[in-house]
């Protein structure tokens, strides 16, 4: 092949590849993008209805409940202004505990309980997921108080 043809071939192939990749990327993005929704917004009903999303906040003190021997666990997550109940079944991360930051993947159930299919806790004592830190700082409430009490007056109905 002549150099000019080589270049044309290279450019053509690259353009084709990028077009295919871009198309697939956009299509698949739609299905795999997961939004982070603040707890207060969830309580206000502003969350994706038919798909998974992420929530984050602090685990309310004393809210962890499980029946002896059962894999199911219930707890509450607060952004200091509002609180939602969360249900999960499975192994929890090591650094999951009351009063600490947590991120949960899942969707809202019929009963207004967040059904988590994945729980992430931080890996390091000093580290908090930026979105959680952001969400907490927005509400400017007393974090200690929120952790101990939850935000009793602001929570989803029926829960």
């Amino acid at each position: 092949m002549k150099p000019r043809q080589q270049r044309m071939l290279a450019v053509g192939l690259a353009a084709l590849g990028i077009a295919i990749a871009a198309g697939l990327t956009l299509r698949a993005f739609q299905d795999n993008m997961m939004f982070f929704v603040e707890v207060s917004d969830v309580v206000a009903g502003e969350y994706p209805k038919e798909r998974n999303f992420r929530i984050g906040g602090l685990v309310v003190g004393g809210s962890m409940q499980r029946d002896e021997g059962s894999m199911d666990i219930n707890f509450e997550v607060t952004d200091t202004a509002c609180t939602i109940p969360v249900q999960y079944s499975g192994v929890l991360p090591d650094l999951f505990r009351e009063g600490q930051g947590v991120v949960a993947h899942g969707r809202m159930g019929e009963d207004n309980v967040f059904q988590a299919d994945k729980i992430l806790a931080k890996h390091d004592e000093d580290y908090m997921a930026p979105e959680v830190a952001d969400s907490l700082s927005k509400h400017q409430q007393d974090i200690q108080e929120a952790v101990v009490k939850g935000a009793a007056e602001c929570r989803p109905n029926d829960s």
Binding site: I20, L24, A28, N32, M33, F36, R54, E131
Partner: peptide, 15 residues
Amino acid sequence: KISIGPPWFNVAFLV
């Protein structure tokens, strides 16, 4: 605030 899950990478990367 979004995150892109591993399933997307798994599929896209195979292409």
